[in-house]
Computed example of a mutant assay.
Amino acid sequence: MGRLTLNILLSFAQFEREVTAERIRDKVAASRRKGIWMGGVPPFGYRVENRKLVVDEETASHVRWIFARFLELSSCTELAREVDARGLRTPRGNRIDKKYLYRMLGNRAYIGEAVHKGASYPSEHEAIIDPDTWDKVHAILKESPRTRAARTRADTPALLKGLLYGPDGAAFSPTHTRKSDRLYRYYVNQTILKHGAGACPIARVPAGEIEAAVLGQLHAVFRQPEIISGTWQAAREQANGITEDDARVALQQLDPLWDELFPAEQVRIVSLLVERVDIGTEGLTVRLRVDGLVGLTREMQAGELERVA
């Protein structure tokens, strides 16, 4: 009888717990259907006042920029780099990475809706993103990330187009190939294209590796005292007000700003600075343009570079 009574009491206690939990779930669902904020960490761009979401204009402007910039880049990886360059952080002070950006772009709170168990309802709070922008962003997100990444890389101009030459003096042309939805970029020797394999010891080179090697040499050049002095002397002939310190600061500023430049702007700067790149079996030779260094110095002083931010 004692065990029976105990089991009956335990069953009623479990029944009360389940009834209470069900009532709470129903209360939350009913409140979400009415668009009421039910607590938690507010989305980036909002703050909580009187238990309601209110648009925080300072951070909401960043949200609008993120959505607009994604429409231009179609890549959360590239967008994460730009967000990090701007120094933006989550409400808890953490770094905004690609995963966080995907959650932001899929958060229907930004169009003034409340979501509960996959269903969305009109909410009490004000929208930050207009429906047209939301639809455009999600049309892009429906595509495969590999497809978007391949298109982004394919649309990026080749940095060394018209500048790269092989050991036989023939130019290299940019090309690419696709395999399993992945894009591979190369520079191919024109001699190989005309006369077939074996006509030149270097048939083709991976674009990413050769471009990184050339950029590495350029960044090293900007720190060499003799290059800075020569650039200053050449610039002084065109503008007497430029000092050697001005030339040094202008050239060294390009290194941290490089990743913030538009791809087309990067191509223009490489063409401005590099006269010719010769690749051989023993290494790489980069020939610079002195007048290009002078022109770049003036542009850096005037702040005329086209940056993505």
Rank of each mutant, 00 (worst) to 15 (best):
C76R: 00
E113T: 00
I129H: 04
P91F: 12
V54D: 07
F70K: 07
A80H: 08
A114M: 15
E124M: 07
E58C: 07
R51P: 02
H62S: 09
A80K: 01
A68V: 00
L88A: 05
E49H: 09
I128L: 04
K98H: 07
E126D: 10
R95P: 00
L105N: 04
G106F: 09
E72M: 05
W65E: 14
A80C: 00
H138C: 03
D56H: 12
C76L: 13
I96V: 11
S61M: 10
E57L: 06
L53F: 14
L101F: 12
R103K: 15
V54G: 06
G118S: 10
L105T: 07
Y110T: 08
Y102V: 05
P91V: 10
N107G: 03
E57R: 11
D97C: 08
S120V: 11
L141S: 05
Y121Q: 02
R69A: 10
N107A: 05
A85F: 14
A68T: 03
E82W: 10
R86P: 13
G112V: 04
V83E: 11
D56S: 09
W65K: 05
L79W: 14
D132T: 08
L79S: 10
V83P: 07
S144G: 04
Y121H: 11
Y46N: 09
K117P: 04
F44E: 04
F70Y: 15
D97R: 08
Y46C: 04
I128Q: 06
F67C: 02
I66W: 02
T90D: 06
D132G: 02
W134H: 05
I128T: 01
T133Y: 10
F44H: 11
I66Q: 01
E78G: 00
T77L: 08
P122T: 04
K142R: 13
R86G: 13
A68Q: 09
F67N: 07
R86T: 11
H125N: 11
R64E: 15
V83H: 11
G118H: 12
D97K: 04
S61C: 10
S120F: 15
K52F: 02
P91L: 06
L101I: 02
V54L: 09
R89S: 06
I111R: 07
R95E: 14
F70L: 01
R69C: 05
V115F: 00
Y102W: 10
E72D: 12
Y100K: 10
K98N: 03
R89E: 12
R92V: 07
N50T: 08
P43F: 10
G112P: 08
P91C: 11
V55K: 06
D56Y: 13
I128F: 05
V63H: 04
H62T: 09
G106Y: 01
F44Q: 03
L53M: 14
F67W: 08
E124F: 01
A85H: 13
I111E: 02
L141C: 06
K142M: 11
W65G: 00
A127H: 01
I96H: 01
R86Y: 15
Y121P: 02
R92L: 14
T90S: 15
S123Q: 11
L101E: 13
E113M: 12
R92N: 14
A127M: 04
V137P: 04
A109T: 10
K117D: 15
P43N: 04
